[in-house]
Design a protein around this nucleic acid. Structure first.
Lengths: 627, 627
DNA sequence: CTGTTGGCGTTCGGCCGACAA
DNA sequence: TTGTCGGCCGAACGCCAACAG
């Protein structure tokens, strides 16, 4: 397990270490901001207890302020890091003393080369009942911010980043992963990241050596050939693909550091989570252990660890009082986590008034997946998160769309579990109910896409995918792209699928995100063999299918509206190109979702301070400590 | 994660379930006796705290009586079962109310098809200071044995076992695991376990379907061909090898149940444990979580789980007072666990007078690994464990030999870590010191091999490896054989190696243990790719090397004596056959041990009641609870 | 500019008996 | 009796340019 000591280099120090940290962040993807050592976070026990059954619990306050005593950037090597598999909601205090971001911490994945961060925490005590929660989450948090340099969250937005080296990220195509050939390197990527070739030669070639996060060196033959000429990695590539178990939809990153060394990372499209792990995550046993650790830390300031896997994330889908008996004095409402693509989320039926009142309305599902429907995500023309998610015309904005899609996924899972019926696409899908989920995006607050130029660049990208952008922006973007565009079906678990797809080929000035324009086939993943591999050797892909209504959900939403977009530039682009395979791919992707194993990569839950403070304020106002 | 409910079938019930449990035990190997549901066990916090650093601890009594509320037989599917990675020493009470066996519980391995047992425990309270420990461990344990049917340990000795089906176990040869061919089935194994073929045909063949522990069905072409004729598995075999990631030295088990169904299991020669996992096992963090869970269970009778991996075992290597300050009232001495082949054992230098006084003496290492040296293990002609481990001539008996070897392994690890020097075999190896470890074997007490016939059968087995024996005996034997005979070298970690090898080709009337007569080469394992795979593609095999003295150890022992055997029948056998390749293989194996990843399979620590009561009695006599 | 495909030479997988331990 | 090897054949690998989107 490779570990990059984030603390040793509080920013950037040694060349090699800095590059590794940079590669780590590149692999982790967008917006993986980690709390700094010495910063304070708040652990909310109820939040994670609500995500599963509860048992007899050790006495733990409803809110535990923890000090981050260590942060390690790690890479898995096929073994689970031996940390407890508990989800953990952590709110970090910003330098202004306010709640800014929320991450869900969960056991890292078993796949090799998974990046995750391991945080060492020490509980510093529960929040006292005397302190008003608004003060606590707003200001007045001086007493818990007395030590350490409160940089709060390590920032990947680029402002305090070292000069970004040349890098690119490419989603692997069927050809890239096929045994038939090698890896097709985007021209500009090769020119920017690889040593120059002597183009005078007939077939210029060279040997490339790239090191991954483990420091392992990989050798590739880089050749410039073909008609027209193109850059290819041939010899050594298939070995890399096999060793890393890369498949269609996964992404590789090449990064040329300032020291000239080439580095190589992978970012997988999906996680292979099996039910055993999921059960473990929500097991009462695990929770007890977690709470016991927190309890111990409160008692004697012992250190406990949590792991954060950038790809294991979910939504704060619900806020409601869960166990007023157990937590009698607390007005805090539990945050219900809706895990991406997971089934073991309790309280599915629970309604969050906080959400429902925002999404609300009744709309039909008609046309939700028709080929002419236009939809997008991740185009955030509105920087004002505090405005309603439904505009004057009743259209959901992109965020609401996204959260809506997530609800659908949850429904699918339930349906498949209960009756196993796969419902083909029908124009008259009955209405269904939902407890709309919300995702708050710091990106929106940051206004990254709050200019017409963003849309313009985006539109241009369909013709020329390489447009200058800042490093962190592109990386953040790539994270979202990787996860949301590509679905992979794992055998045995069949089911109709649905996901929101996004296209946004924005790239930085020296950092590229490359994804295939059309993806026609899906290869089977070659991960650790499991029962599924053998019992069901064939995979089933279902297109043009849609969701099945679930009576458990309340509130109905029209997918037509949900998929409607307020992003004018994107809509224009879509109209221009909607008959092209690219968007056919989007649609396919949209309807494909494995019911268990395909997860959308959501790097982190970004919690808007305004949202949380504004909407949870009253719920928090009267909270008190656990007796 | 497949789970066989041991409790549902309290002995044997449904045919399928019974076979699965039987296959589980066959895969788990020898002597994996599990406590029954309802039985009481004792947890010794200090014992596992001593195996690593300590931190601030939650208040836990020095001895915690736990009730086993559930036992599950599990099979891993590539994911670590999400249990805490803590070692846990559990002493079980026998029906006579006395301490009989000791198991070390630790996180299961990540490899697929690892069998492990998951125990659900509820703490029932610490032992009161008023109760004398001898009473506690001897009699007077009525109050903690009031519930459940106290069968104490599930017994694999065969007395209450169902009629053993036909089965065999074969260690895979290089040919078996090569892509060049299939699997050579030992003739009698095929005849006993596979459906009969029509030998009148030129090349009789049939399709075999065998189910593994997951219930997954595997198909093989079974053909009888070649000159001379032999049974082979061809089509389907390489797929099985690849999917299960089997390599040279691993073993496969075929088992034909009473229902006629063929079942198939694997037993790996080594575990791939990496340092990250090892660190996690001994981390203070993990310990705190474990203790917190126990503390919680004590408080509210909540359930906590421990996993027992039959192959993750160690020795009770030391008994000494570790932390009289933290545990002021306790006279209990900590059991220091010497993990097989692991490096993270603290207190290496600690001397256990309890051991030293038994092994004691100063002997040289000369001839310890000469080709003419005769040694063995697992031949236990002496049933009286209470006799000294050193006979009148100063020879160590086989048990002492084994424990001594383990000490050597620990030394190697330390040496390799510190200076990396590989010391070739030399006839005048300096003396070295050791804190002699002991292993207590219930097998010895059971007198399984306490008859001349055993040795006779054994001797005969070198000419005809198939001799009738009871099922459980053979299974137990096979476990030891698999682990101890085969070493596999993992790249990157080089080092000279030493291990005690044993040959004992005893087989049951219908259960065979088959291992290759000569193993000339070792293929690289094909587990999850790690840094080691690439950084060091070549493996180094060192033969005829020996140990390096370590000044940290006290007490010197002559390996010549250590390898001496008191087992007359075996000695005769060895003299007869010592010039044969079979024993050459033994010697090679003996000197090969990867410093990190090659672990000897030791199914369980068997604690002799007499030993423990007699030797620990005084230490226990005055123990008291944690305040 | 690059994803996919056909062509084609090479490697590897896998079934066979020969041979020998 | 069975572990390993050479022989042999077909499948897969992998490098190449052609072609097309």
């Amino acid at each position: 397990m490779g570990i990059v000591d984030l603390n040793a280099a509080d920013g950037d120090t040694a060349a090699a270490g800095a590059v590794c940290a940079e590669l780590w962040h590149a692999c982790a993807g967008a917006g993986v901001a980690l709390p700094r050592r010495g910063s304070a976070v708040v652990y909310l026990p109820q939040a994670h207890l609500a995500a599963g059954g509860s048992g007899d619990l050790p006495p733990v306050p409803a809110h535990v302020v923890c000090r981050v005593v260590d942060v390690q950037l790690c890479v898995s090597v096929g073994l689970l890091p031996a940390v407890q598999p508990l989800l953990l909601v952590i709110f970090a205090f910003s330098s202004a003393g306010i709640l800014t971001r929320c991450g869900v911490f969960v056991q890292a994945d078993v796949a090799t080369d998974e990046v995750y961060a391991r945080l060492a925490l020490v509980a510093e005590g529960g929040l006292s009942a005397a302190s008003n929660v608004c003060q606590m989450f707003g200001k007045g948090t001086n007493e818990i911010k007395t030590q350490g340099n409160n940089h709060e969250m390590e920032d990947t937005d680029g402002e305090n980043k070292p000069q970004t080296p040349h890098m690119f990220c490419k989603t692997l195509t069927a050809s890239d992963t096929s045994t038939h050939g090698g890896f097709s390197v985007p021209r500009r990527a090769a020119e920017d990241c690889f040593p120059p070739l002597d183009y005078e030669q007939l077939r210029p070639s060279q040997e490339l050596i790239a090191k991954d996060l483990h420091g392992m060196a990989w050798s590739f033959r880089h050749i410039y050939r073909g008609q027209p000429r193109r850059h290819l990695l041939t010899t050594g590539w298939s070995s890399f693909i096999n060793k890393k178990k890369l498949a269609l939809g996964d992404a590789v990153l090449f990064l040329r550091g300032n020291d000239g060394e080439l580095r190589l990372g992978v970012r997988r499209a999906v996680q292979l989570k099996n039910e055993a792990l999921l059960q473990a995550v929500s097991s009462t046993d695990s929770k007890l252990r977690m709470l016991s650790a927190v309890r111990s830390s409160l008692d004697d300031r012992s250190i406990f660890h949590v792991c954060f896997n950038p790809r294991s994330s979910g939504l704060i889908s619900d806020v409601s009082e869960v166990d007023p008996i157990r937590w009698p004095g607390s007005k805090w409402r539990c945050l219900v986590i809706q895990w991406d693509g997971h089934t073991n989320c309790n309280h599915k039926n629970r309604v969050s008034p906080w959400e429902i009142e925002r999404i609300g309305g009744t709309v039909s599902v008609t046309h939700c997946l028709s080929s002419s429907s236009k939809r997008t995500k991740l185009c955030f023309p509105e920087s004002d998160l505090d405005t309603s998610c439904i505009d004057g015309n009743g259209h959901l904005d992109s965020m609401a769309t996204e959260s809506f899609n997530r609800v659908l996924q949850g429904q699918e899972l339930m349906r498949s579990r209960t009756n196993g019926v796969s419902c083909p696409h029908s124009p008259d899908i009955p209405k269904f109910q939902t407890s709309g989920r919300r995702r708050f995006s710091a990106e929106m607050r940051n206004g990254l896409f709050n200019d017409a130029e963003a849309g313009l660049r985006h539109r241009n990208s369909t013709e020329s995918p390489y447009q200058p952008l800042g490093f962190s922006e592109s990386v953040r973007f790539s994270e979202v792209l990787q996860g949301q565009e590509i679905s992979r079906v794992v055998p045995l678990y069949h089911g109709n699928t649905s996901d929101a797809c996004t296209h946004n080929d924005r790239v930085g000035s020296s950092a590229y995100v490359h994804r295939p324009a059309a993806t026609r086939g899906y290869s089977l993943p070659q991960f650790t063999p499991s029962a599924a591999d053998v019992c069901s050797p064939s995979s089933v892909f279902m297109f043009n299918q849609t969701m099945v209504p679930q009576p458990e959900f309340e509130g109905t939403i029209n997918l037509k509206y949900a998929y409607g977009s307020r992003c004018a530039p994107l809509e224009q682009m879509q109209r221009k190109t909607e008959d092209r395979p690219f968007f056919q791919h989007q649609m396919s992707c949209q309807t494909e979702r494995n019911q268990f194993d395909v997860a959308v990569s959501l790097p982190q839950m970004w919690v808007s301070l305004d949202q949380l403070a504004g909407k949870l304020g009253e719920a928090l106002a009267g909270f008190s400590d656990f007796p």
